[in-house]
Structures are given as structure tokens and as C-alpha cells.
């Protein structure tokens, strides 16, 4: 690829990404009343999308080979339990992450 072809490719990727980010705001501007269906989606999507992000961030874990996702399961459970019982998000995330690092670097190494 020439330099200008590279620039055009990068610009195309930036444009595609920006379409996905801006489109909802362009279609449903704040100045107009949001249709009831879209308002409903605005309520149910956030919790659903958070579940989807959990799956998305774990998508490359192989359940049927290697360690069968055991380190992810253990560290993930620790995170969820700490969040549920202490309601301290930084503590939950930090403990889960350090726990995971210890598991993959020492226990399942």
C-alpha cells in the first residue's frame, strides 16, 4: 500500500467507527421527543449490554480445552462475591485481577 492508500484505509476505519458511535444520536436528537420504543430500549439495553460485555471480554477463553476457563471462573467469582458483599468496586476489581494474575502466572503456569 502507498502512504495515501494507508491514510484512506485508516480514514475509512475511523469513519466506520464514528458511524456506529454517532448514529443513534443523529437519528434521535435531544431536541425531539424520543419515541417510546427507543426510550424502552434505553432502559433495558444497559443491563443487557453489560452482560454482553462480560461474555465479550471472555470470548477467547476455551471452555473445552486447556484449563477449561477455571482461572477465569475462580477470579471472576472472587470479583462478583466481593462486589456483592463489600459494594467496593475498586477492591473487587483489584482483588479479582491480582488473583487472576497469581493463578495464571503460578498455579496454572
Amino acid at each position: 500500500m502507498t502512504f495515501s492508500q494507508e491514510l484512506i484505509t485508516i480514514a475509512a476505519v475511523v469513519a466506520g467507527t464514528m458511524v456506529t458511535r454517532f448514529l443513534p444520536f443523529v437519528l434521535f436528537p435531544a431536541s425531539k421527543k424520543t419515541p417510546p420504543l427507543i426510550a424502552f430500549l434505553g432502559q433495558v439495553l444497559p443491563p443487557a449490554v453489560m452482560g454482553m460485555l462480560v461474555i465479550y471480554s471472555l470470548k477467547d477463553v476455551s471452555l473445552f480445552a486447556g484449563q477449561h476457563g477455571l482461572p477465569e471462573f475462580l477470579a471472576g467469582s472472587l470479583t462478583v462475591l466481593l462486589q456483592l458483599f463489600t459494594r467496593n468496586m475498586l477492591l473487587a476489581v483489584a482483588s479479582g485481577t491480582v488473583g487472576y494474575m497469581l493463578l495464571v502466572q503460578y498455579v496454572f503456569a
Binding site: P47, M50, G51, L53, V54, S57, L58, E72, A75, G76, T79, V80, Q83, L84, R87, M89, A92, V93, G96, T97, Y100, M101
Partner: peptide
């Protein structure tokens, strides 16, 4: 894994 843990903690909250 910090990102997974963050999403999990937000999900639990």
C-alpha cells in the same frame, strides 16, 4: 483481566 473484572463488578452492582 482487569477489564473482565470491571465488567463483572458493574454487572453485579
Amino acid at each position: 483481566f482487569a477489564l473482565t473484572a470491571l465488567f463483572l463488578a458493574i454487572f453485579a452492582a
